[in-house]
Design a protein around this nucleic acid. Structure first.
Lengths: 183, 183
DNA sequence: TCTAGACCTTCCAGTTTTGACATGTCAATC
DNA sequence: GATTGACATGTCAAAACTGGAAGGTCTAGA
C-alpha cells in the first residue's frame, strides 16, 4: 500500500493540500518515483479521511477541499517509514523486450538498443538541465527532492551506458570473427 | 499487457513449455525483469490459448500440458517487439521513502540510506557471483539473458553508489559548517 | 510399503491500477 | 456576453495483480 503513503506523505509535508495540488505533485516532483492517476488520488483521499489519517481542514472556491494530516496520520507515516521495508517489485518493459530481442534480426535488435541509448541520453540530459535550472530551497522537500532527482539522472546515465555496452556486445556475437581478411 | 508477451515470448523461445516450466523461468531468469505469480501465468496461458496465440502441443505424465506457439503467436510477439514502445512505468518503493525521509530525525534518515547502500551492495555482489558461476551457452536466451543480468548488476551498483552519495549529502546538510575550529 | 518431495494444474476472493466519463466553477480575454 | 482554459471533484467498469487454498501424480529412497 504505497500509494496510500505517497498521498499521506505529501499532505504531511505540505501541511495542507487539495486533490488537485497532489495531482500536480505526482505529475512533476514524484513522476520518477511513484505515479498515480486522478481516480487513485481522489479515491485514496476519501479512504484516508474515512480512516481518520487526514481531515478536511478548509473548503475553497471551486469546491476545493484542503486536506491536512491528523496526528494519527503523522504517526502512520512515521511507522511506515521506520517499520515497513519496501519490496523491490521489479518490472521493466524495456528490459523485457531486450530479453526477447533474439526473435528479431540482429540488425533490428541492435537498432532497438541504439534507440534506447539515445532516449536514455536525452532523459539524462533533461534531468541534468533541470538540476541546473532549479533554485533549491532549504526545506525538506527541496533537499530530498534533490536526492531523488540526482537518482533519476544517474539511473538514465547508467541505462544509456548499458544500452551502448549491450549493443556492442551484440555486435561481437552476431558478426563473429569471419572477416579473415584481417588476419 | 506485458505479462502476455512475457509468457508468449518464453514459449516461443523455448519452443514448448508447461506452466510449471514457465514459473521456474519467471523465478530465475526473468526475476530481475518481470515478476509473475502462478495464478497469473496459468491464467495467461488459458487466455493465450483462447486467442489462438499458443496451443497445447502435448500432454505429459502429471496432467502436464506442453504449450507451443502458433504462427499467429509468433507474429504477435514480433509485432509487439517492433511496434509497441514500452512506457517506463516508474514506481519505486525505496525511492518513495527517500522522498519523505525528512519526516524522520536526520540520524535515522542517514541510517536508512546506509542500510539501503549495504543491501544494494549485497545484491550487486550476488549477481556478480552469478555471472561468474554460470556457463553461458550460445543460444539466444543465454545471450540476451546475459545482457539483462549485466543490467541488474549495473543497476544495483548504481544504487549503492547513489545511496552512499545521498547519505553524505544528508550529512553535509544536517550537520552544517558549525565546526569553526577548523578555520 | 510408505512417505517425502518434486511435479503440475486450477480456482478464487480481494486489492490495486488503468483509463475513461461526467460534472461543474471561476477568471480572463475577445 | 461568450468562450476558453485552468481549476476542481467525483464515479465507474475493466484489467491486472496478490496471495493463497485445494487437489492430484509420479519417483526415489528409507
Amino acid at each position: 500500500m504505497s500509494l496510500r503513503h505517497a498521498v499521506l506523505g505529501l499532505i504531511v509535508e505540505l501541511d495542507g493540500a487539495s486533490g488537485y495540488d497532489l495531482m500536480k505533485l505526482f505529475e512533476i516532483s514524484l513522476a520518477n518515483v511513484w505515479t498515480a492517476t486522478q481516480s487513485q488520488v481522489y479515491g485514496e483521499l476519501a479512504k484516508l479521511t474515512a480512516d481518520g489519517l487526514i481531515e478536511v481542514a478548509a473548503e475553497g472556491p471551486r469546491g476545493r477541499k484542503e486536506y491536512r494530516a491528523t496526528d494519527a496520520g503523522r504517526d502512520e507515516l512515521r511507522r511506515w517509514l521506520v517499520e515497513e521495508q519496501p519490496r523491490p517489485a521489479r518490472r521493466d518493459g524495456v528490459l523485457l523486450k531486450v530479453f526477447f530481442l533474439g526473435q528479431l534480426e540482429p540488425e533490428r535488435a541492435r537498432a532497438y538498443l541504439r534507440d534506447s541509448a539515445a532516449t536514455m541520453g536525452e532523459r539524462r540530459d533533461s534531468l541534468a538541465a533541470l538540476q541546473e535550472e532549479v533554485t533549491w530551497g532549504e526545506d525538506n522537500l527541496s533537499l530530498y527532492g534533490r536526492l531523488t532527482l540526482e537518482y533519476g539522472r544517474r539511473f538514465f546515465a547508467m541505462r544509456k551506458e548499458w544500452a551502448e555496452w549491450a549493443e556492442a556486445e551484440l555486435a561481437r556475437h552476431t558478426a563473429p570473427p569471419e572477416d579473415a581478411d584481417r588476419a
